[in-house]
């Protein structure tokens, strides 16, 4: 069999003529060996999955769609840029406010705030108002201590400055408040996701900005846990898909990543390339 030194572009022209695209049907034999091989490829058996298999897979897909449920909204690239920009701006504003409040000598309500623990800020404000003003008639008792203990919920009284979107790692968790980039965030205590949030989680928060004392507080209206899938059952039970292998997921949780990690399955993925190295 002799192989003529064909021009690739001449070849595709002849192939389009002899094996027209998007048209089924037999192709007649050709003397050109390259076209003849292409013709032979068209004669390879066309595989067809039997309808029973197609239907069976379809049923599995429908189940998977129902089990996985409606996905949480994810941020676009633009959204992420916007968040980074917002975060930087808020950090700048925080720093500015900090400087302004901290350097005002007449402001007696401005309490010294430890920089050791970011959670101290809002808590300290509440604590100070109860304990710093001793009254002669006040009997030191457990009741004062009890009243001093601040609830985890923060209620910033000032009018909201605006809305803020922030995304970053959780640095501190204290009840339903968390700290992200040194910004105090009050999470919705009724959100079933709230108790499952841990230090180190990447969190996306949208909410209103308020100021408590000299501290910016974000009242979260939208909270999204990024990178960790969290499954919540109808009864409010929670399973985080980054649980260790000795903590198996409950039956209702799909827990694909746990199963992939601990049972050797395949984790869901995207961006799989079609490389040349699979043979």
């Amino acid at each position: 069999m002799t192989i003529p030194p064909d021009d690739p572009f001449d070849l595709i022209g002849r192939l389009d003529e002899l094996i027209p695209p998007n048209q089924a049907g037999a192709v007649s034999q050709n003397n050109d060996p390259l076209i003849e091989i292409a013709r032979r490829i068209t004669e390879l058996p066309r595989l067809t999955l039997p309808e029973s298999s197609v239907a069976s897979i379809e049923a599995r897909l429908r189940d998977a769609a129902l089990t996985l449920g409606t996905p949480r909204p994810r941020l676009s690239r633009w959204g992420r840029r916007h968040i980074l920009l917002s975060t930087a701006t808020v950090m700048l504003v925080t720093a500015l406010l900090w400087v302004i409040f901290d350097t005002d000598p007449d402001d007696n309500t401005n309490l010294p705030i430890s920089t050791d623990t970011p959670t101290l800020t809002a808590t300290a404000t509440v604590t100070a108002s109860s304990t710093v003003t001793p009254t002669p008639t006040f009997t030191p008792s457990l009741t004062s201590t009890a009243s001093v203990t601040p609830p985890p919920t923060i209620t910033p009284t000032p009018a909201p400055v605006g809305t803020l979107v922030i995304e970053g790692p959780v640095e501190v968790v204290d009840g339903t408040t968390v700290v992200i980039y040194d910004i105090l965030v009050q999470l919705d205590p009724h959100d079933p996701l709230t108790p499952s949030i841990r230090v180190g989680d990447l969190l996306h928060v949208e909410g209103e900005i308020g100021v408590v004392g000299n501290r910016i507080v974000v009242l979260a209206t939208v909270t999204v846990l990024i990178e960790v899938e969290v499954y919540i059952s109808d009864s409010g039970e929670i399973f985080r898909d980054d649980a260790p292998c000795d903590t198996p997921p409950p039956a209702w949780a799909p827990a694909y990543r746990w199963r992939a990690r601990c049972e050797g399955g395949q984790p869901p993925s995207e961006g799989m390339g079609m490389g040349d190295n699979d043979d």
Binding site: D16, T42, M274, G275, D276, D279
Partner: peptide, 27 residues
């Protein structure tokens, strides 16, 4: 023979031949 020969091609080459001559896509 043809199927054996096809296994000697790269994945990209096989994919192109598959799309063009089995699926009958245009170039």
């Amino acid at each position: 023979e043809l199927q054996s020969a096809l296994t000697n091609l790269s994945d990209e080459q096989r994919t192109i031949l598959f799309l063009r001559f089995v699926e009958r896509k245009s170039h």
